[in-house]
Design a protein around this nucleic acid. Structure first.
Lengths: 162, 162
DNA sequence: GCGAATTGGTTGACATGTCATCCAATCTAG
DNA sequence: CTAGATTGGATGACATGTCAACCAATTCGC
């Protein structure tokens, strides 16, 4: 069977998406390090932590939310720990587990970084879109996410029933 | 001045975009390594090279197209060179320069990887979107790219006239 | 209970990316 | 022409990410 290549409009969307991705990343990373001394991964960790009631989360729970491997998170946390942004505590329920805890410095870092970061996200993305485009992006991305999260739908051909 | 945080729909779009990014990356990388033994960066290098008439491009020209630093590209090329996918040749016009050349093996690699890769892009993204959404994504991403590429527009406040 | 399988997390080796520096070739101004 | 600035690219040191192996605590089957 011949390959269905991308037609002109599909190609335009795909190339545009990848270029946008890359440029947006570069700019947001630049802004973050310059204004707050944080990398994007740092920001994401702190941000997810700060959204929980007391700034604490099981390592695996945090990894799942971020779509990171436990290994990656563990490595990253040791680095952030050395900079005083987070600490690890032992887990009461499960002696294997560890709980990641936002330090005061970490809380401060994310709180002072957030306004500038959000402003950059607005300036370089959100505020450039019409309301309809914002909704379209929301709808389309969630559809893609749901699809990728469902192992059955992800396969090339229909899967045998469970 | 208070921060203009993202409202619910903007937040939904922004989070969705980032999750989509991540999951799509993971899946496409998985598919590429598994089916073709290439990483996404490998694929991009080969792809850009193969789009030129004779599979040759100045290193800096390639770096610019890919939005990579020359350093990154240079490192990556030495690795790809060791695997026999590309070679470097001296540049006739400019003795400092070097020309990146697609080898036969490199050409073969991209040609055999492309169909599966495009199919994955379709399956996990393009074919999940309505034609209107494809166009919207194309339009919006190009707008963002143009904005980020223009140093004047990128700044927080209006720049002084040139 | 108890041994086997599983899970949560860490670690080390290695691949990849970034940053600053360096060198040689080119360009520019006088 | 030629000294100084700039450019194209390579390189080494270091930060980050991945993968496989590992260890200890938990869970599962019986």
């Amino acid at each position: 069977m011949g390959t269905r290549w991308l037609d002109e409009r599909e190609d335009r969307a795909w190339r545009g998406y990848r270029r946008m991705r890359r440029l947006l990343d570069l700019e947001l990373a630049r802004q973050l390090t310059q204004d707050a001394g944080l990398s994007e991964p740092d920001y994401d960790v702190l941000s997810d932590l700060s959204e929980t009631p007391r700034g604490r989360l099981r390592l695996s729970e945090l990894a799942d939310r971020m779509l990171w491997s436990r290994s990656r998170l563990s490595h990253h946390l040791t680095r952030m720990q050395q900079r005083g942004l987070v600490t690890r505590e032992e887990c009461a329920d499960d002696a294997r587990g560890s709980v990641v805890v936002l330090t005061t410095a970490g809380r401060q870092a994310i709180e002072s970084a957030a306004p500038g970061h959000v402003a950059a996200v607005r300036r370089h993305l959100i505020d450039l879109l019409t309301p309809a485009e914002v909704d379209a992006l929301g709808a389309l991305s969630h559809r893609v996410v749901d699809h990728l999260a469902d192992p059955d739908l992800r396969a090339t051909r229909p899967q045998p029933e469970a």
